[in-house]
Simulated assay, not measured.
Amino acid sequence: MTITSQDRTPYEVERSAALVMGFVNVVGDGCHHLAVAASANGGTLSATVPFHNDGETSDLDPDDALEAMTVLTLAAIVGGGAVIRTHFADQTSEVRGWKLVEFYAKPCSASETFSAYCTDPATGELIPPEWGVEYVAAPRLTV
């Protein structure tokens, strides 16, 4: 399934843009990667958006943001999720996630994010967590 900008309603465009900016604004300063995914018809569509926040500015690439908005539109319709990984100078990182439902991002707890990252989707078996990664509760978005 392909979603183009012509397929989206003004509401969907507005909500997906608000979600992308909500994710960017909620994590504060630092080096981040936003990953959004939607699952439909046995496949997964995903987009990754690297960005750096510094004070009041962000270097979010408009083309990456548009790609994320497209995936968010599909995720809002069929279900999906978003994750932000924040990288630190000491080579560690924090991961937080949200479930996407009807153009709203429901924050996941640290244990929900850990389970999503550390469970093999094909077998259901546990996967050891990555070194230096802390799974943290996601904050609520104000969009």
Rank of each mutant, 00 (worst) to 15 (best):
M1V: 12
M1I: 09
T2P: 02
S5Y: 04
Q6T: 13
Q6E: 15
D7A: 11
D7K: 04
D7C: 05
T9Y: 00
T9E: 01
Y11Q: 05
E12C: 07
E12Y: 00
E12T: 05
S16Y: 00
S16D: 05
A17G: 00
A18R: 06
A18F: 02
M21T: 09
G22W: 01
N25T: 07
V27P: 01
D29K: 03
C31V: 11
H33L: 12
A35K: 13
A35M: 13
A37F: 12
A37G: 11
S39I: 08
N41P: 00
N41M: 15
N41W: 08
G42E: 11
L45N: 07
S46I: 04
T48H: 09
T48C: 12
P50D: 09
F51P: 07
N53S: 12
G55H: 03
E56K: 08
E56I: 10
D59I: 09
D59G: 11
L60Y: 02
D61K: 08
D64M: 14
D64K: 15
A65S: 14
A65P: 03
A65C: 04
A68C: 14
T70R: 15
V71H: 02
L72M: 09
L74S: 09
A75P: 03
A76P: 03
I77C: 08
G79I: 07
G79V: 08
G80L: 00
G80Y: 03
G81R: 03
I84D: 01
R85C: 05
R85Q: 12
R85K: 14
T86R: 14
A89N: 05
Q91T: 10
T92M: 09
S93L: 06
E94T: 15
V95F: 02
V95Q: 07
V95I: 14
V95E: 10
R96Y: 03
L100Q: 07
L100P: 01
E102Q: 12
F103T: 05
A105D: 12
K106W: 05
A110D: 14
E112C: 06
F114V: 01
S115E: 11
S115G: 07
A116V: 10
T119M: 05
D120K: 01
P121N: 09
A122S: 12
A122R: 13
T123L: 11
T123D: 09
I127V: 15
P128E: 15
P128F: 01
P128H: 04
P129Y: 08
G132H: 12
E134L: 07
A137L: 02
A137G: 06
A137V: 03
A138Q: 02
P139T: 07
L141E: 04
T142R: 15
T142M: 14
T142L: 14
